[in-house]
Amino acid sequence: MSEEKKSEPLFSKKNIQLIKNPLNQINPVTIQVLGICSALAVTVQMDNAIVMSIAVMAVLVIGNVLVSLMRNIIPGRIRIIVQLVIVAFLVICVDQILKAYVYDVSKSLSVFVGLIITNCIIMGRLEAFALGNKPWASILDGVGNGFGYGLVLVVVAFFKEVFGSGTLTIPGFEKFEIFGNATDLTGLYAMDYMNNGLMLLPPSSLFIVGIYIWVQKARNPELIGE
């Protein structure tokens, strides 16, 4: 990241758009409706959501660069398989690294790491962008889409964890107990506050994303197209 900031001239207006647009106008999750599976399934706790976003972003950026570098030598007929192999290769690396260095996180992400392979965001960006653009633009596109994806994950995880468990776990920090301790009945719990169990169950992610889209489209009326 710091390198990008040093090479200021590379940030032409067009390149900045590559990063900014995916955060809102063409958000991969809420507007293009890609990569939903993992976005919804790993959001019970904030730290899982953050690690998952980082993993997806890493795979996306590196995959974009590789495909972009190889775009002139990939045979057209087998390009989808080539892309799948590149993504699968990167995902295996991510999975192995997680298992070796952050074992606890890899346990809680379980099969969802493998599902990065079929995360449509990655295949979509490789096919639609990296195959026809230079490496630098592909990096920015990867970072932008990675952030766009991460943003939704973090928002969903925030609501799910705060209202479902009353805590907030951010990697590298102690667990925050926002409303007090539920077992010892301190803080709000002393006044009969209860965690909302529904927030922990799968359907609540769908409600939150639905409302997220509602808010986003209400603020950007030009997005209401269909």
Partner: peptide, 21 residues
């Protein structure tokens, strides 16, 4: 060309993965 490309890619990817693992 397609076959050569696929073969080389499989060898490289396989080798790298085995090394990482």
């Amino acid at each position: 060309y397609t076959i050569i490309f696929a073969t080389i890619m499989v060898i490289i990817v396989g080798g790298l993965l085995a090394f990482v693992s």
